[in-house]
Simulated assay, not measured.
Amino acid sequence: MGTYGESRIGLVRKVNEDSFYISSDHDVLAVADGMGGYVGGEIASRTAVEAIAYYFRNFTFAAPVQLEKAIQYANSSILSKVHIDPSLQGMGTTISLVTLVRGMAFWGHVGDSRIYACRGDEMKQITVDHTIVQVLLEKGKITAAEVATHPQRHVLTRAAGVDETLLVDSGAFPVQKGDRILICSDGLTSFIDPELLRQSVCDYSRSERDIVNELFRHVYENGAKDNITAILTTI
């Protein structure tokens, strides 16, 4: 199993508000995309991944409910920092989390970072974005073609660090040798063609590092208006 993760600042932002975590055994993987201003977003995302790392040093990660609890713990950790320093009020972060245990991938998710699974030449998006445009799309008020240019496409309906109570999406799916999992912030998915993303991730002739670097290159060519973070792992 090979795993590679990287986070880079885009061409517009002055600070990288993204964070990511890869455990020493490559079996706990998380991406967090912060929001809340120059300092707040960076603190929120970093707090989230640190909380997740701490949580899984002490608790199991072999059930969806445990990933929900880990993200809720991250939520509480961010809110605690706001309580200590009220100037951080309004900060928050997306969290997309995967754990790998005995032929299963467990996942937890809030926000619009994403988790994809690839087997052979087929890639599936596991998570559903928690955004205004996703709600409008599901209600049939906009089309899929309108999502990319909608003025509210980056407005979240759910994020860690905003409210005491946080609803976390979670689930599990079987994995087998050769499967790939991509976890990434919307700084990647918003600036790359979905088909190019699939072709790149499902290209087993190249390493995880090479694929991530190629994806980042395409994002920069397309303007890189946000920070970019991705973890790619092969089972």
Rank of each mutant, 00 (worst) to 15 (best):
V212N: 06
I192T: 13
G10A: 08
R153W: 05
G103M: 11
L88T: 05
I231W: 02
Y55Q: 03
P151E: 06
D186T: 03
S113R: 08
L196D: 14
Y204G: 09
F173L: 12
A32Q: 00
V135F: 04
T189V: 12
V212G: 08
M91V: 05
M91Y: 05
S87E: 12
Q134D: 13
A117Y: 11
T127Y: 10
P64H: 09
E122R: 04
L188M: 06
D18A: 11
S24T: 09
T233A: 09
G92P: 07
G5L: 02
I211E: 00
T127N: 10
S45D: 03
A44G: 07
A32V: 02
V12M: 09
E122F: 00
R153N: 14
V162L: 14
V49S: 10
D226C: 13
E138W: 01
R102F: 07
D210R: 15
G92M: 10
D25Y: 09
V219N: 10
D18V: 07
V15Y: 15
F173I: 02
L88A: 05
S113Q: 11
V49R: 06
G187T: 06
T60F: 06
I9T: 14
V110R: 03
E195H: 14
F59N: 15
D226Y: 12
I183E: 11
Q134F: 12
F173E: 00
D203N: 14
T143N: 05
R217P: 03
Y204F: 12
A62K: 15
D33T: 08
I22G: 09
I132T: 11
I22W: 05
L79Y: 10
C118E: 00
R180V: 02
Y54H: 13
G103Y: 09
D193P: 08
V155N: 13
V28Y: 05
L11A: 15
A144M: 14
K225D: 11
G111F: 03
E50W: 00
G2F: 12
L167W: 09
G41Y: 08
Q89N: 12
K124F: 12
G34I: 04
A105M: 06
K141A: 15
D186G: 05
E138F: 03
V135I: 12
T143C: 06
E138K: 14
I132W: 11
L67Y: 01
D121T: 15
R8V: 15
R209M: 11
Q199R: 14
S205C: 01
G37W: 04
G108A: 02
D179C: 03
K69L: 11
Q125L: 12
E221R: 04
I95Q: 02
H109W: 07
L182V: 00
Y204H: 10
Y38R: 13
D121Y: 13
H154A: 10
I52C: 10
D179W: 03
R102I: 00
K124D: 08
G40V: 04
A144V: 15
I115Y: 03
T93I: 03
M35R: 06
V110G: 07
T149H: 15
E50T: 13
G37E: 05
R114Q: 10
V15N: 15
I192N: 13
L100V: 13
Y54P: 00
A70N: 09
A144R: 15
L100Q: 08
